[in-house]
Write a protein that binds this DNA or RNA. Structure first.
Length: 483
DNA sequence: ATGTCC
């Protein structure tokens, strides 16, 4: 068991566990957290899981953990690990079940005051245009050929259908498409689940939130992103639905064999993995990229549906209701990137699980309009508490494999939240705050209660205090759609 | 997160 005494403070916002702290560790662990956040997470298994992850073969540097960390499958949510050839592995636990779960932020020039009388109509329209809930099918029924195209093209598939602009794609991480997806490595069962779910939101912590730009901390960056104080925004949080879930399930099963065949020693069977250049590792990478592209297409289609909902609710009564894409990020993914480690540029496989890429200014992977601001980093808070727009920094390139936090992060489990919180009472409390809510189930709402999450403002204070991102703007929620 | 157990 890891206690606060195993952690060496580096600053108010950063801690270290040295590589020789525990048997089996190959690298150290670097944690970004305040003492208060750390004490909360030491009650669950997240830090121990980071220590376990530090024993994976072929790590190129320390395992990094973000302040919104909490316990996940094998590997902590909020964790970042970089592995390198020749010994490096890929581990599905380091990515998560919801492959390319991510966040898309859109913004408008509609002042809240102008839209206020139509908010109820707007949230109803969003609820009708964006199907949500566990197991929910959308209106699309993909043929085998179309599903393969979605796997290969990502958001580009939506563009072919007329549901995305060139600017939409440019403002997605990786242009909304990871190269070298291999749909042939996707099981028939995953394909069957994926066929009907494109263009759906899902459940759990997935949501669509209408917000208003409340506070601006970096005027130049906010202007570059088209974030106008007092105007409406729309945030979509969702992933690859049953398709990605099945791909992860299949990989966790099949990589158990790889661990045996390659004689890999792991401290927790949930850390199953395979060498990056093995047939098993390559097959998972190809399937994972297929799920990632499915999720990019999913968020793009939901964005198109949200634009139709804005039109349905606001056309004729509010001017300039167009929603432009600010950015689309993924926070559950592994990607091949070049990072400078120990003074030398290295090609590494960066696993980010509940962590957001945060490229600094001047990165060649950013669209030109963000060359000076750095990558937009989108941080949804817990329901009703506000969300943040941050930007990547040069510091993140050096300290965290160009990564930052992804949200508030749980402090207690879904089951505990369900036991302790009444969905109906929460709904009334949110409405009292002036937040319109459309929720598929009261139990599901209770699971996502703000009391079950850490304080997103403290999480953001930590990553900005540590210098791995900087504040751009804070968004206040005015309406939310949940599965 | 998830057709929350094929």
């Amino acid at each position: 068991m890891v206690t606060i005494h195993d952690l060496t403070p580096v600053s108010e916002f950063e801690w270290e566990i040295p590589a020789d702290a525990r048997k089996g560790m190959r690298v150290g662990v670097r944690l970004f957290a305040t003492r208060r956040l750390l004490e909360a997470v030491l009650k669950d298994n997240a830090v121990q899981q980071a220590v376990n992850a530090a024993s994976l073969p072929g790590l190129a540097g320390p395992v990094v953990v973000m302040p919104d960390m909490h316990q996940g499958y094998g590997f902590p949510i909020g964790g970042v690990a970089a592995t390198a050839l020749p010994d490096g592995v890929i581990s599905p636990g380091g990515i998560g079940y919801d492959i390319n779960c991510g966040v898309r932020l859109m913004a408008s020039a509609v002042p809240l005051e102008a839209a206020q009388p139509y908010l109820e109509r707007l949230v109803t329209a969003l609820d009708q245009h964006c199907p949500s809930g566990v197991g929910t099918a959308g209106s699309l029924r993909l043929s085998d050929a179309d599903l393969e195209k979605v796997c290969r093209l990502g958001a580009g598939w939506a563009q072919q259908r007329g549901w995305a602009t060139e600017m939409d794609l440019r403002r997605c991480e990786d242009g909304g498409c990871l190269p070298e997806a291999d749909p042939a490595s996707v099981s028939p069962r995953a394909r069957e689940r994926g066929r009907t779910q494109l263009g759906t939101l899902g459940a759990g912590n997935h949501f669509i939130e209408v917000g208003v730009v409340e506070d601006v901390y970096d005027l130049e960056a906010a202007q570059a992103m088209g974030l106008e104080p007092g105007c409406l925004t729309l945030m979509i949080h969702c992933g690859s639905r049953g398709f990605g879930h099945q791909i992860c399930t299949d990989a966790v099963q099949s990589l158990q064999g790889a661990v045996r065949r390659y004689g890999i020693s792991i401290p927790d069977r949930e850390l199953v993995c395979a060498p990056l250049d093995s047939p098993e590792g390559r097959a998972y990478l190809g399937a994972m990229r297929s799920a990632a592209n499915y999720a990019f297409a999913n968020r793009q289609i939901l964005a198109h549906q949200a634009r139709l909902a804005f039109e349905a609710a606001l056309a004729g009564v509010v001017r300039n209701f167009h929603l432009h894409l600010v950015y689309d990020i993924t926070h559950n993914i592994a990607k091949l990137e070049t990072h400078t480690l120990n003074g030398r540029a290295q090609r590494v496989c960066v696993h980010r699980k509940g962590a957001t890429r945060a490229f600094g200014p001047g990165s060649p992977d950013l669209p030109p309009e963000y060359a000076h601001t750095g990558q937009p980093v989108l941080v949804p808070g817990s329901m009703g508490t506000g969300s943040w727009v941050l930007a990547g920094t040069a510091e993140s390139m050096e300290r965290s494999y160009a990564s930052s936090c992804h949200g508030a992060g749980r402090v207690f489990s879904r089951s505990q939240a369900k036991r302790e919180i009444r969905g109906e009472a929460l709904l009334r409390a949110l409405e009292k705050q002036g937040i319109q809510v459309r929720a598929g189930s009261m139990g599901g709402l209770a699971e996502e209660a703000p009391q079950a999450y850490k304080d997103v403002d403290e999480v953001v204070r930590t990553v900005c205090g540590a210098g791995i991102t900087r504040k751009v703007a804070r968004l206040r929620p005015v309406a939310v759609v949940k599965g």
